[in-house]
């Protein structure tokens, strides 16, 4: 064995030992770190606040202007309501997630800033029909609305009666 082969042997040996020790230090450091795993159904991941998930609607603000539906590039928003003066009797406000690509273009044109995209992302269903979600929190008229409508109707009737005098 020449001297260079001998020194190469020792260098190989020390390299092997040192690199093993280094690798083990790295894995030890990771071992001691907090794991990044999120136990999903129990915990929800932190999505960072600007996540574009499933929409939610602030129904009391919405004025049934159809701006979001017009803006939608895939025509997935459909809405239906009856106006009773200022009050809206909602029948449907559906969003078809078969088509929706969560692009957020419906959010910007809203004049009342009432449609938003939340952090909920679980869209799993057993039926394709279930992918068409209704965003309404209530349908028809609430008691409050009914009262207001009734007041307005009463006022109208009163006026009509007054005008008829």
């Amino acid at each position: 064995m020449t001297s260079s082969a001998f020194s190469r042997w020792w260098r190989n040996l020390s390299d092997g030992v040192i690199s093993t020790a280094r690798g083990m230090r790295i894995t030890l450091r990771t071992f001691l770190r907090k794991p990044v795993t999120v136990q999903y159904p129990d915990e929800k991941p932190d999505l960072g606040g600007r996540y574009r998930g499933i929409h939610y609607l602030e129904q009391d603000l919405c004025i049934y202007c159809d701006a979001c539906a017009k803006a939608c590039p895939v025509d997935c928003i459909e809405m239906d309501a009856t106006r009773h003066g200022k009050e809206l009797e909602w029948h449907a406000f559906t969003l078809d997630y078969n088509r929706c690509m969560l692009c957020e273009l419906c959010v910007y044109p809203c004049p009342k800033d009432c449609i938003h995209q939340g952090e909920e992302y679980a869209l799993v269903t057993e039926d394709r029909e279930d992918m068409v979600r209704d965003l309404l929190t209530w349908k028809g008229l609430t008691e409050e609305q009914k009262q207001k409508v009734a007041e307005v109707e009463a006022l109208k009737a009163q006026r009509a009666a007054g005008g008829g005098e």
Binding site: T27, T30, F31, R33, P35, V36, T37
Partner: peptide
Amino acid sequence: KIAGHIQARLGPM
């Protein structure tokens, strides 16, 4: 467990 934590996971839970 050790394999999990070395890979910043939790292992069986």
